[in-house]
């Protein structure tokens, strides 16, 4: 890491980036992508990628609002994401298509408000750059003093997910079975959405709305192509996310001398491209596995979590005559 800092000191003007922000970026980037990936596995299983992405955009709105009134952006991000999660839940959206609709409405309103905040921000303080910072984030705006707050919020999101692990899976596979077994499906859904809101707003404030969605969905979707076992998928997703983030940061440093502009390619591009490549590879691997399986004519039951939307979905048989 000191090597990286040394290179950085050579690259950027001394004083703008000392080794301190870099260390913060690596630590914070790692923590954020780890938490996002774990939460993301459930997001993908439950089919809530849109909500995950929208909460990020809503957090961004909050961030620009906080920027406007001069408050700490972190709280703006978290507060707006939580309010957004509550509003989505308010529309009583149980079926996927209704949920899609509710998410869309909340997102639309949030984006409108963001437009206003950004407009007011630009007319008052004349800092058009704020749009860029807010959309694409910056790993380097986090001050070291904020790290404890940050880690605490991350841990609380992780704790909620760990606590809800089994009910979450069950109600994702079949809300009816979960309900029949006494799982408070709606409460579990709300708590999960709130945890998602916290995780996403944290990643938005540090790595930006684009990367936030990328590390939330990409590693999890790739992991779920590789394995159907939730525990294993979480491990894979976390590994992929952290690897991709650190590699992205490294490549961004290396790219300083690259054409055409010779001032460094953005971190978000590298991370996103890596995530996309990993997903494509995982997709390829899972297809080859499927082809191998049909070549060997083995009739065996797979241990599966039965993701709705997968080719081998299974209905909740046996509950028909309850």
């Amino acid at each position: 890491m000191t090597g990286v800092s040394a290179i950085l000191n050579g690259i950027f003007e001394p004083g703008l980036f000392t080794s301190e922000p870099v260390r913060v970026a690596v630590v914070v980037g790692g923590v954020v992508s780890l938490v996002s990936a774990v939460v993301g596995v459930f997001t993908v299983i439950r089919g809530q990628s849109f909500a995950g992405h929208s909460l990020g955009d809503l957090g961004t709105t909050g961030g620009s609002g906080a920027f406007l009134v001069g408050a700490n952006p972190l709280w703006g991000f978290v507060a707006f994401a939580l309010v957004g999660a509550g509003a989505m839940e308010l529309f009583e959206a149980r079926r996927p298509r209704q949920r899609d609709m509710a998410t869309g409405i909340v997102l639309g309103a949030g984006l409108g408000i963001a437009a206003l905040f950004l407009y007011l921000g630009t007319t008052r303080s004349n800092t058009t750059g704020a749009t860029i910072t807010i959309l694409f984030g910056s790993m380097f705006v986090i001050r070291a003093s904020m790290i404890p707050v940050f880690v605490l919020l991350s841990l609380s999101a992780l704790a909620v997910v760990a606590l809800l692990y089994r009910p979450l899976l069950l109600s994702a596979v079949s809300p009816d079975i979960a309900h029949a077994r006494g799982v408070p499906v709606r409460t579990v859904g709300i708590l999960y959405l709130l945890a998602l809101a916290v995780a996403v707003s944290l990643s938005c404030v540090t790595i930006g709305a684009v990367l936030s969605t990328a590390v939330l969905i990409g590693p999890a979707a790739a992991a779920l192509r590789l394995t159907k076992r939730p525990g294993l998928a979480i491990t894979w997703a976390a590994l992929i996310a952290v690897a991709v983030t650190w590699l992205g940061i490294l490549l961004a440093y290396d790219s300083y001398y690259w054409p055409p502009a010779r001032r460094g390619w953005p971190v978000s591009f590298f991370v996103v491209a890596l995530v996309f490549v990993v997903y494509l590879l995982a997709d390829l691997a899972s297809r080859r596995k499927a082809r191998r399986q049909s070549a060997h004519a083995v009739a065996r039951r797979e241990d599966r979590v039965g993701l709705p939307g997968d080719s081998d979905r299974t209905g909740p048989a046996g509950l028909g005559a309850r």
């Binding site: 499927a290 399986q293 049909s294 070549a295 060997h296 004519a297 083995v298 009739a299 080719s311 081998d312």
Partner: peptide, 14 residues
């Protein structure tokens, strides 16, 4: 309609 000796294999299972 008539089905004659229909067999179907899907992803390795008959």
């Amino acid at each position: 309609l008539r089905l004659e000796g229909v067999s179907l294999w899907l992803s390795g299972r008959e």
